[in-house]
Design a protein around this nucleic acid. Structure first.
Length: 757
DNA sequence: TTTCTGTACTAATCA
DNA sequence: AGTACAGAAA
């Protein structure tokens, strides 16, 4: 029970709350994760609750993992039996078992946003609708919103209000697209992200035995970040908790930032209505930030009308004022931020891992990256274009998906002609028509292709089907790694990539190997029981942006969107791009609700900082390759100016601005998963390869003169040092570490290198 | 059927 | 700046 002594009275009360519903309103930095973990530990350790009976829903898998580890220090390995994870991953786990009740195979595929969009694109095309009007993005958002409100395609079609709204917004065919989309997903044995929630709801409402089973299993339910749950999640939780009513939700209305995904603050208010016996606990003391930051954040959030009454306070020091940096361009903004980070380290011994750069949109990372690289500051980017979104990764994954579930239409279409095997769009189109007319899946048609197509194409398709079938048989007898390796080799994917000797091609090949390594680590994980391909695919389908690798973070600045930063904290935080139309986003200016959500997002951003907060903006910025002027964000004016230190451009030390540029280190994007393996993508940087252009008088030297350790100039990559020369008979190679683009292997018969002494 | 090339269009946040 | 698509040429 020592763990209770570390809590303040309010926290302790929340932890000791016994049975029945409770809501914990926890301000930023008030120790809510601590309360949650101690509470769970207390349930197990003191109240002798069986961990199997506890369900904890968190916002990221990483948060769940950390929480589990902390609980383990109190109650031991028993903690591993707690059901803990994101809504999506917990529900996917349930659906793996129960999907057959809903007519889905238990090895169902999970469609990510890209799969969903490309399926919608296909449907729009098949219906001969204008894809400029029915944009996949827009259509998907509408369908997603409907699913989050638990409206299926049939109900959608019947609903007069929705119909008139769709007509008004000139998308009258939406209902029919939704019907088709639903049908195609079901036929393919696939669920999109929203289906994981929707189908769980269907399961619990249509199958009393299943409802009964999970209600008695989950006797204690805890929900973190409750302010970001949507209607579907709300209803499911309510159903699960209906019998025991032991539900504790933790949230902060001021940090609700996912309305675009259907999150509804209303859920907090509904909660009070649903459980009249509800106890409410408030955690108002901030342990994270300086008083300046706490006060400044309060001065911002009070501009919002919609909020629950609470007053955040802190015992911490007053701290430093909030710096405001003004730059003339996005590139200069990056430079100033990078220099400031460098200076913090040099003069104040603040290591890079304690510093973070936050921005509204992922596209803002580029200018920052370049500046950090020039100063030789290591960094890592959370989110953005992730490893799994790369073409080469998706290609192999499509083969793997197809092997697990051959009805997966998106996967089939992706690889039926990759690598090129002479099955073009025309032929695939014919198969699709046959599939539509006969009601069979695309795979069924492929199996019986000779009945629908003639000529040599039929033979090729037949060969493809035979290959996939052989993969399926192979997969039944082997683990995920051996199967994936077999598939990569036999399908020709590996050969196709290794034949591409361009720089980008080599990077792609390495990425593919990284994926295979990742699968190997998955298989080698001692704690894992299921090592088949299907388990691996399920594992990676639900990775979140924040599910990051930790061992590699040392001496690296963290960069991410503010959304990804939720729940995190850093000593020094830079919030960039504080300009009208960027933050707040131009798309969020039309209603008070939207603007207030942007303001909450800003609130989340600044409350990430412990000691020092810096806000920056630029007066011009590149968009669509053009330079646009911008004006400072209204949010800057909303902060009480007594907390601000507006830096005048002159004050900045010129030493830094003229410093010689250092070679780059670091700079890889990292994505990983909690099971212990991690995947790094080799960045494919055409941009930087293009950036450098040799002077007109550039003349390469004779490759024979090159030696290890020499400093050389390359016509595209700029300057670098030869780290190794490989004297293979017909392909002399040099490995050169370039200042800007990092290590490259160059074939000396092609590469033009000039020696610099 | 594939590959090349020019053009049109686009970048908000996430599971 | 990057890319996705359409149309022409091979």
């Amino acid at each position: 029970m020592d763990y209770l002594t570390t809590l303040n009275p309010e926290q302790r009360e929340a932890v000791l709350h016994n049975e029945g519903p409770a809501m914990i309103i926890a301000g930023a930095g008030s120790g809510k994760t601590r309360v949650l973990t101690v509470r769970i530990a207390h349930l197990i350790d003191y109240h002798r609750v069986d961990p199997f009976n506890i369900l904890t829903l968190t916002f990221t898998n990483k948060a769940a993992k950390e929480m589990r580890q902390r609980i383990e220090t109190v109650v031991g390995t028993e903690a591993r039996n707690i059901w803990m994870g994101t809504f999506h991953s917990v529900f996917a786990k349930i659906l793996r078992v129960e999907a057959p009740l809903l007519g889905y195979p238990s090895n169902f595929t999970i469609y990510d946003t890209d799969d969903a969009k490309s399926l919608l694109k296909n449907i729009v095309k098949e219906k001969n609708l204008d894809s400029k009007v029915y944009k996949p993005n827009v259509v998907l958002n509408r369908i997603s919103a409907a699913k989050n409100r638990l409206i299926d395609a049939k109900q959608y079609k019947k609903d007069a209000t929705i119909a008139s709204y769709d007509v008004k917004s000139r998308l009258p065919e939406l209902a029919n697209i939704y019907l088709k989309y639903e049908e195609r997903c079901f036929k393919a044995g696939a669920m999109d992200f929203d289906d994981l929630l929707f189908n769980t709801y269907k399961l619990l409402s249509k199958h009393p035995d299943a409802l009964n089973k999970y209600q008695s299993k989950f006797r204690y339910i805890l929900v973190d970040e409750y302010q970001d749950t949507n209607f579907a999640q709300y209803v499911i939780v309510k159903k699960l908790a209906a019998r025991n009513r032991n539900i504790v939700v933790v949230g902060d209305d001021a940090q609700s930032i996912y309305a675009f995904r259907g999150a509804d603050i209303q859920n907090i208010l509904n909660f009070e209505k649903d459980y009249p016996e509800l106890r409410v606990y408030k955690l108002e003391q901030n342990y994270r930030s300086t008083n300046t930051i706490v006060q400044a954040s309060s001065s911002i959030i009070k501009h919002n009308r919609a909020q629950l009454p609470k007053s955040i306070w802190t015992d911490n020091d007053e701290g430093k004022l909030i710096d405001v940096i003004r730059a003339t361009s996005d590139n200069e903004e990056g430079k100033l931020v990078a220099h400031s980070i460098y200076e913090n380290k040099l003069n104040h011994q603040i290591s890079y891992e304690d510093q973070a750069i936050l921005y509204r949109t992922n596209s803002q990372s580029r200018a920052m990256e370049e500046s950090l690289r020039k100063l030789g500051i290591g960094y890592r980017i959370v989110g953005g274009m992730s490893f799994y979104q790369r073409k080469e990764i998706k290609d192999l994954l499509a083969y793997l998906r197809l092997t697990v579930n051959p009805n997966d239409e998106q996967a089939l279409r992706r690889v039926i002609n990759y690598p090129k095997r002479g099955i073009g769009d025309t032929s695939v189109g014919k198969l699709l028509i046959a599939s539509d007319e006969t009601g069979q899946t695309l795979w069924d048609i492929v199996l019986k292709v000779k009945g629908y197509l003639g000529g040599s194409v039929a033979g090729k398709i037949d060969g493809f089907a035979t290959m996939i079938r052989s993969f399926m048989i192979f997969g039944q007898k082997n683990d995920a790694y051996d199967t994936a390796m077999h598939i990569a080799k036999t399908s020709g994917v590996l050969r196709d990539l290794s034949s591409d000797k361009t720089i980008e091609g080599v990077a792609r090949y390495e990425n593919l190997n990284e994926l295979l390594n990742g699968i190997k680590q998955f298989v080698d994980d001692q704690e894992r029981e299921e090592k088949d391909l299907g388990s691996f695919l399920q594992e990676i389908a639900l990775l979140t942006n924040a599910d990051e690798d930790e061992e590699d973070d040392r001496e690296k600045v963290t960069m991410m969107t503010i959304h990804s930063a939720k729940g995190l904290e850093f000593k020094n935080v830079y919030v960039c791009g504080l300009e009208e139309d960027l933050f707040p986003s131009a798309m969020m200016l039309s209603s008070r609700e939207d603007l207030e959500e942007e303001r909450r997002l800003f609130y989340v951003a600044i409350t990430r900082a412990e000691d020092q907060l810096t806000l920056s903006y630029a007066t011009s910025r590149y968009r669509y390759g053009r330079l646009f002027n911008c004006s400072p964000s209204r949010f800057l004016e909303e902060i009480d100016s007594s907390y601000l230190n507006v830096k005048k451009p002159k004050e900045r030390s010129s030493i830094f601005l003229e410093r010689k540029e250092k070679p780059a280190i670091g700079g890889e994007k990292i994505t990983s998963k909690e099971g212990g393996f991690r995947l790094k993508a080799k960045p494919i940087r055409k941009t930087f390869a293009k950036k450098y252009t040799a002077p007109p008088d550039f003349k390469p030297d004779d490759p024979g003169l090159l030696e290890e350790g020499m400093r050389v100039e390359h016509s595209k990559f700029g300057f670098g040092v030869i780290s190794k020369i490989d004297n293979a008979p017909n392909s002399k190679k040099a490995i050169v570490t370039f200042d800007e683009v990092g290590e490259k292997t160059l074939l000396l018969s092609f590469a033009k290198l000039k020696i610099h002494s």
